[in-house]
Protein backbone atom coordinates (compact mmCIF):
# COMPACT_ATOMS: atom_id res chain seq x y z
CA UNK A 1 0.00 0.00 0.00
CA UNK A 2 1.21 3.49 -0.77
CA UNK A 3 -0.03 6.90 0.31
CA UNK A 4 0.87 9.87 -1.89
CA UNK A 5 0.39 13.43 -0.77
CA UNK A 6 -1.34 15.67 -3.28
CA UNK A 7 -4.32 17.81 -4.16
CA UNK A 8 -7.49 16.28 -5.50
CA UNK A 9 -8.97 18.39 -8.31
CA UNK A 10 -12.62 18.00 -9.21
CA UNK A 11 -13.56 19.55 -12.53
CA UNK A 12 -15.68 19.09 -15.64
CA UNK A 13 -14.25 17.11 -18.53
CA UNK A 14 -13.51 20.19 -20.67
CA UNK A 15 -11.32 21.66 -17.96
CA UNK A 16 -9.71 18.28 -17.51
CA UNK A 17 -8.64 18.18 -21.15
CA UNK A 18 -7.03 21.58 -20.81
CA UNK A 19 -5.22 20.37 -17.71
CA UNK A 20 -3.97 17.29 -19.56
CA UNK A 21 -2.53 19.40 -22.36
CA UNK A 22 -0.94 21.73 -19.82
CA UNK A 23 0.60 18.69 -18.21
CA UNK A 24 2.43 17.79 -21.42
CA UNK A 25 4.36 21.03 -21.34
CA UNK A 26 5.08 21.07 -17.66
CA UNK A 27 4.15 17.89 -15.77
CA UNK A 28 2.30 18.30 -12.51
CA UNK A 29 -0.26 15.50 -12.51
CA UNK A 30 0.43 12.66 -10.11
CA UNK A 31 -2.48 10.49 -11.07
CA UNK A 32 -5.32 10.67 -13.56
CA UNK A 33 -8.21 9.16 -11.61
CA UNK A 34 -11.24 9.41 -13.88
CA UNK A 35 -13.09 11.86 -16.14
CA UNK A 36 -13.66 14.34 -13.38
CA UNK A 37 -10.82 13.80 -10.94
CA UNK A 38 -7.09 14.35 -10.96
CA UNK A 39 -4.44 14.26 -8.27
CA UNK A 40 -1.72 16.86 -8.71
CA UNK A 41 1.35 17.97 -6.80
CA UNK A 42 0.31 20.08 -3.83
CA UNK A 43 2.74 22.94 -4.47
CA UNK A 44 1.66 23.29 -8.11
CA UNK A 45 -1.98 24.13 -7.41
CA UNK A 46 -1.58 27.91 -7.44
CA UNK A 47 0.33 27.89 -10.72
CA UNK A 48 -2.11 25.49 -12.34
CA UNK A 49 -5.06 27.65 -11.38
CA UNK A 50 -3.33 30.72 -12.81
CA UNK A 51 -2.49 29.09 -16.13
CA UNK A 52 -5.93 27.51 -16.40
CA UNK A 53 -7.62 30.84 -15.81
CA UNK A 54 -5.52 32.48 -18.50
CA UNK A 55 -6.40 29.62 -20.83
CA UNK A 56 -10.13 29.91 -20.16
CA UNK A 57 -9.94 33.66 -20.53
CA UNK A 58 -8.81 33.22 -24.14
CA UNK A 59 -12.18 31.68 -24.91
CA UNK A 60 -14.34 34.51 -23.64
CA UNK A 61 -15.66 37.34 -25.67
CA UNK A 62 -16.17 40.62 -23.90
CA UNK A 63 -18.24 43.51 -25.11
CA UNK A 64 -16.02 45.95 -23.25
CA UNK A 65 -12.90 45.00 -25.17
CA UNK A 66 -14.48 45.68 -28.53
Amino acid sequence: MRAIKGVLLTCDSAVKQILLSMNEKDPFIIEDLDDYHLVIKADEEYRVRKVLEAELEKNTYSLEAS
Binding site: I4, G6, L8
Partner: peptide, 21 residues
Protein backbone atom coordinates in the same frame (compact mmCIF):
# COMPACT_ATOMS: atom_id res chain seq x y z
CA UNK B 1 -17.73 29.96 -14.06
CA UNK B 2 -15.26 30.75 -11.34
CA UNK B 3 -15.89 27.45 -9.63
CA UNK B 4 -15.00 25.09 -12.44
CA UNK B 5 -12.16 23.68 -10.45
CA UNK B 6 -12.56 22.42 -6.93
CA UNK B 7 -9.55 21.33 -4.98
CA UNK B 8 -8.88 19.50 -1.74
CA UNK B 9 -5.57 18.63 -0.20
CA UNK B 10 -5.04 15.12 1.07
CA UNK B 11 -3.54 11.73 0.34
CA UNK B 12 -4.07 9.22 -2.43
CA UNK B 13 -4.02 5.65 -1.14
CA UNK B 14 -3.22 3.04 -3.77
CA UNK B 15 -1.47 -0.24 -4.53
CA UNK B 16 -3.26 -2.20 -1.85
CA UNK B 17 -1.98 -5.76 -1.58
CA UNK B 18 -5.41 -7.34 -1.74
CA UNK B 19 -9.05 -6.45 -2.27
CA UNK B 20 -9.80 -7.37 1.34
CA UNK B 21 -7.10 -4.99 2.55
Amino acid sequence: ERNRLKSAEGFLYKDFASQAD
